[in-house]
Design a protein around this nucleic acid. Structure first.
Length: 278
DNA sequence: ATGACCGATTGCATCGGA
């Protein structure tokens, strides 16, 4: 109201991340959440679909541009945006030339224009890493985190608003899970994993949720098994990391827990931030 | 009573997820 009266418009964008655990199984739930939550940008993980089979028609009918980086059966990420994409980059670069190619679709970057400035948004699905004694799993996870670190160092040199959002498969601290003892030794909670997440943040990122609250027991994932949801045995593994230039626009962070109570839910719930574009 | 999982695949069992 005041902004309108004073002659300039303050707009707040809603930018969300959600591991939907399969677009085929979650199509109707996703559409309902898009209608209710009305995000301006939504980063999706685990679409479990090839690009040309992604059901984009009804999503586009709600006003979204759709860009995917998918593969058959597993993984796969996407970005839905009401703003047009200026640029899309798929896949996280390798650390060294000659390294084995990464066949897994876990990373997509969208570039947008907001009030004549750049906004970069990444949807990422970091490897789970279990079991830790399998190098194809845990070493792959740690290597992927090293690649994300290197890519982020490079991007931060641009000094632009940049938001890295997604399913990190990282429990940052003991208070981010129901029972730390049950997670000891798990790839999501191993010291090698948590120290890499800390190192990534220490490049200069601000974690949206933790800049809003220090409360324990805030979760974004509840396993389908063993009544984890009704018992509130959750973990906080979906994170939003903001570059300094993005943090200046940060207004708040929320988790759409209510979606976990809907029929046929994903095991993750959406997490989103408000981005003041003035 | 005390909470027995879910999604994708060419499948009617297996894998991957966390």
């Amino acid at each position: 109201m005041c902004a309108a009266l004073s002659g300039f418009e303050v707009l707040v964008m809603k930018i969300a991340s959600w591991n939907i655990n399969g677009i085929k199984a979650r199509h109707d739930v996703l559409l309902e959440w898009l209608r209710q939550a009305e995000p301006d940008i939504a980063c999706l993980q685990e679409i479990k679909s090839m690009d040309d089979l992604f059901p984009a028609v009804e999503i586009e009918a709600l006003g979204y541009n759709v860009e995917t980086h998918g593969q058959k059966g597993f993984n796969g990420v996407a970005i839905l945006s009401r703003k047009p994409f200026d640029e899309v980059n798929r896949g996280l670069p390798l650390l060294n030339e000659g390294d084995d190619a990464d066949e897994q679709a876990r990373f997509i970057e969208g570039v947008f224009t907001v009030n004549d400035t750049v906004l970069r948004v990444v949807s990422l699905y970091l490897p789970n890493g279990n079991p830790v004694d399998d190098p194809r799993k845990f070493d792959y996870k740690l290597d992927w985190m090293d690649r994300l670190h290197a890519w982020s160092q490079d991007r931060l040199l641009l000094e632009e608003p940049l938001i890295l959002m997604g399913d990190y498969n990282v429990i940052p601290q003991a208070e981010d899970c129901w029972d730390p003892k049950t997670w000891e030794g798990d790839a999501l909670f191993r010291p090698e994993t948590r120290s890499r997440f800390e190192a990534l943040k220490n490049l200069g990122f601000t974690e949206a949720l933790r800049s809003s609250t220090a409360k324990a027991g805030i979760y974004t994932f509840w396993d389908y098994q063993a009544g984890a949801w009704p018992k509130n045995h959750g973990v906080r593994i979906d994170h939003l990391l903001m570059s300094p230039e993005a943090t200046m626009h940060f207004k708040g962070c929320e988790i759409d827990k209510f979606v976990r109570d809907w029929g046929k839910p994903s095991d993750h719930v959406p997490i989103w931030l408000e981005y003041n574009d003035a």
